[in-house]
């Protein structure tokens, strides 16, 4: 029982990180029909930028904020300068993001070198919590809580504000939305930037545990894509459910059949695709 609870909490921690990455991916997909190969790179850039800031200033909070802002700005520029010209044409967009993924990978190597590192734990959250027989690291619980907060904030913005209404309209039917006077191009830039920033924030949150190394971008990308596919492309609710499903399955898969851990991800994806090709909450 203790084992089950510990593993479930670990699964929820993976789910929390995945949600931070996948929510931006799925929203950008919803508005722009873009398959963003560079999304894992935004996560990676986040860890590296935070690392530099924390080394210089010693402040974790500042590191997280700077990483979020810098990477969001990078994402905004990539979208406005390079991706926008292709409209909703998915192939050149995808190739473009692939180019940027390689570019970012090599630039990170150039600037920060190839040595792996981890970010420091925040002082208050270094220990662990004990409830009965279950011992669980505080930091992981903290990340779960933060992701839940981010999720709630995104939901409020999406469901309760004007910009959220515009966003939903643009996801539903971009042409009709722009005919109604919504600036879909600017909205796309905004969504892309927020998505990049969230991925970078995810990088900082995962930093003390997963750290930063060359290749982390493509290690996390497939998991994020499986989340988006399972949950339904373009759906925020789908990203929540998909993250939990993938986080749990991945975690229990790793614990129970480590050699086929990657393969266990396959099962929920096939199941969902066979029953509902658009994902749990996606629409055709």
């Amino acid at each position: 029982m203790t084992y089950l609870i510990t593993q479930s909490l670990n699964g929820l921690f993976s789910a929390a990180l995945l949600f931070l990455i996948a929510s931006g991916l799925t929203l950008a997909f919803g508005v722009m029909k873009i398959v963003n190969i560079a999304h894992g790179s935004f996560y990676m850039l986040g860890v590296y930028v935070a690392y530099t800031v924390i080394q210089r200033t010693g402040s974790l909070l500042l590191g997280a904020v700077v990483a979020l802002v810098v990477v969001a700005a990078v994402g905004f520029l990539v979208q406005r300068v390079f991706l926008r010209r292709f409209g909703a044409d998915p192939l050149p967009q995808m190739m473009m993001t692939m180019g940027f993924a390689l570019l970012f990978r090599d630039l990170t190597l150039m600037i920060w070198g190839g040595d792996p590192f981890t970010l420091p734990y925040p002082g208050l959250l270094r220990g662990s919590m004990e409830v009965g027989e279950v011992v669980f690291p505080s930091y992981r619980l903290f990340v779960i809580a933060v992701a839940a907060l981010v999720g709630a904030a995104l939901w409020v913005v999406n469901d309760r504000t004007l910009i959220g209404a515009r966003l939903r309209a643009a996801v539903d039917d971009p042409e009709m939305a722009s005919a109604m006077g919504i600036n879909v191009a600017r909205l796309s830039g905004l969504v892309f930037a927020v998505g990049a920033g969230l991925a970078a924030f995810g990088g900082v949150m995962g930093g003390p545990i997963l750290g930063g190394y060359a290749g982390i971008d493509f290690d996390l990308l497939p998991l994020a894509f499986v989340v988006v596919i399972v949950g339904g492309m373009g759906s925020l609710k789908g990203a929540v459910v998909g993250s939990i499903v993938v986080g749990m399955v991945d975690n229990f898969g790793k614990a129970l059949v480590p050699e086929l851990s990657y393969f266990t991800l396959f099962a929920p994806m096939i199941l969902v695709l066979a029953l509902k090709p658009t994902g749990l909450y996606g629409r055709a």
Binding site: F29, K33, V35, P90, L91, M94, L221, P222, F225, V226, V228, I229, M233, P258, E259, L260, S261, Y262, F263, L265, F266, M269, L273, P277, T278
Partner: peptide, 25 residues
């Protein structure tokens, strides 16, 4: 039965699963 960008994303995920198997098995 999937098309366009959905095909792109699903084949990407399947390809990465194959990669994962080669890497972990």
């Amino acid at each position: 039965h999937v098309r366009d960008v959905y095909f792109l994303m699903i084949t990407l995920a399947l390809g990465m699963v194959l990669w994962g198997v080669s890497y972990r098995w």
